[in-house]
Design a protein around this nucleic acid. Structure first.
Lengths: 204, 204, 204, 204
DNA sequence: CATGAATGAGTCTTCATTCAT
DNA sequence: CATGAATGAAGACTCATTCAT
């Protein structure tokens, strides 16, 4: 695979794009969707006004891109937990490592965390829906996990729909706490405490 | 007690004010602070542009009014739980009735719930701070409750700071669930499930 | 001539009118035509919004009324100087007493003075024209006086049009000085100085 | 010295700025500060609403710019008159040429003249103060000139404070006359007449 | 007559987006 | 490709005027 001049320029373009995305993410996190101005984004990205529109069709489009990337990254870290596969690690271990991976990804990128936590306030209806859909997926994963747990008699009788929503809220509460404080809480410790509370809440 | 014309007009003014507040609350819930336009508010309230400014000094002022009212109402429903008073009902009962009262207040006013859940995204810094402070109060209440529980050996060892944040998130998750669905879940049932999860998570 | 109830109410109305005019004059003087708000006027006059419109058709109308009154008052103090009438006092005495009367009227009513001095800035075209016309009359009076003086060989050769404008400006300059300072300059002294300068400027 | 594209655009911007300033000056002169609307300015300047704010931060800012420029230009034409310097032209010649330069500058720019003459009616307090201060400077110059004249026994006894105000008014009266009429009065002739009146008024 | 709540046209200003250079 | 000047729709807010009580 040789690198042609075209490739180089292609790479440069991608780099430019990333640079704008990063700037935009920070600005959106700082000021919210409405409060973020193109002016602030291009100033942070050190580019001209017109250049911005060379890479993104609109303000909503950058926001969407940021969101898409983040949701894709998160989805790649979260999967159904394999209960039946004897080759797989025990469920609790799978769960723990997934939660750790997810939280680490979010916490290490504060702008992103802020953005996700404050989601829904976007007037960009599509974006709001996409975030909503993502949270829905998370809730479904949790709900199915709960249902499995109930089936195999691992969990006490509970209302999976409701409890999954509660669990998702619990996780968001913890993330907020992690993001707010500059406190040096280690993600792993936090996850262990979180799982302790959550699991005791539903285990038999 | 006689009703003078002045009283009548005073009542009419109060009514007008309520009407505008309700319209504004709905619009803010729909579109967020920034997305809400005075145009949308007055259209919904069926009043003229100028009338709005007869009752509120600015867009931020209505928002503040809504918030103040809501936070005052909520605070009046939430208090420290008396553990030592033998005349008081047992702590769990106190807790349950407070949570029920709170959730009922929030759930019966969906715009308000939406608004509170999506808080923090306000560019009205003061308002954002006030919401933040309110949530801080709630977290403190929970934390102190946890600490009391730890002292008297009721609860297992845990990180009160973190767990209170988790609990608050859990409650918000449940509220979101209640608000989203028109599902006919009774608040009392929901609260019982919520308490079950939460308490098992921390009790010895 | 008996005073009927109708007369009494008529008098009350006139009084009300005067009260509003006085308030308006003060406000116009303070803030200029545009800066003056109906709100400020009715507040100062201690009347309700609607009452204002019972006495004046519009903001422009009060302004016009003030102006009309002032110009009429001024006109009544200023006349052609009789040069030929042997029964009349000498021209310089006539001139002096007219100027004194005029300045005293203006200076004792500071709002009025401010208003007249800053005239022309009214967007109320009619009002601007009326002020302009008044100043035109004054200039004409001065011009004709100069021309008479030239005819009878009292004055040195000069350009009456131009000099009358200069003289009017001179008077306005002096009035400004009188109004600006709370200095206890006596009008009579000021007039004597003013006439000294003016007359020496044109006498042979 | 080569002309780069950047220079060209820089020049174009300056030109644009001048174009807006000219339009604004005309509108302010026509309608006064309050009466002038951004709409009227941009219509006259043939630019879009946003363009205006690209060059000036606010309505007050254009007004300030106009004023600053004018006052600076005027100040550069007016100085203390050197009486003792034997190398300098005689005082009366210095005075005459300053007055001519000043009047020519003002008269050739009618909007500016209108604006200066109607000064003080600005609600932009700062601007009003600046104009007031300028007139104060002029009065001080005149007053000091009179005082010098008194000291060296050139002038008859008079009240410098008052007479300087009168003289300033006289000049404004003449300017008004020049601006009002399209009459073909030559500035030089007008100045000679003006000086004749003014000097005779105060000389011994 | 007096009142003051209601009205809505009009104001200044911001900011996402376009396009000629 | 990059630039940034230009655009104009849209937003918050003011205030002279009207009219039902």
């Amino acid at each position: 695979m040789v690198s042609t001049p075209h490739d180089a320029s292609e790479r440069a373009k991608q780099e430019r794009r990333r640079q704008i995305l990063a700037a935009a993410k920070a600005v959106f996190a700082d000021a919210g969707y409405h409060g973020a101005s193109i002016h602030a984004i291009i100033e942070r990205a050190q580019i001209a006004r017109g250049t911005f529109y060379l890479y993104f069709a609109s303000k909503a489009a950058v926001f969407d891109s940021i969101l898409d990337q983040a949701l894709a990254d998160l989805r790649s870290r979260i999967h159904r937990i394999a209960v039946d596969d004897p080759a797989a690690p025990p469920p609790q271990v799978q769960l723990r490592s997934q939660v750790i991976a997810t939280l680490e990804y979010i916490v290490q990128d504060r702008p992103l965390a802020t953005l996700l936590l404050s989601a829904g306030n976007t007037p960009d209806v599509e974006a709001a829906e996409r975030i909503e859909q993502f949270y829905g997926e998370m809730r479904d994963l949790l709900r199915r996990a709960l249902e499995s747990g109930l089936e195999i008699g691992l969990l006490r009788k509970c209302h999976p729909e409701l409890v999954s929503a509660a669990m998702l809220g619990l996780i968001r509460g913890v993330i907020e706490q992690l993001v707010r404080k500059e406190n040096a809480l280690k993600v792993e410790e936090v996850v262990d405490e979180l799982l302790m509370v959550a699991l005791r809440g539903v285990l038999k």
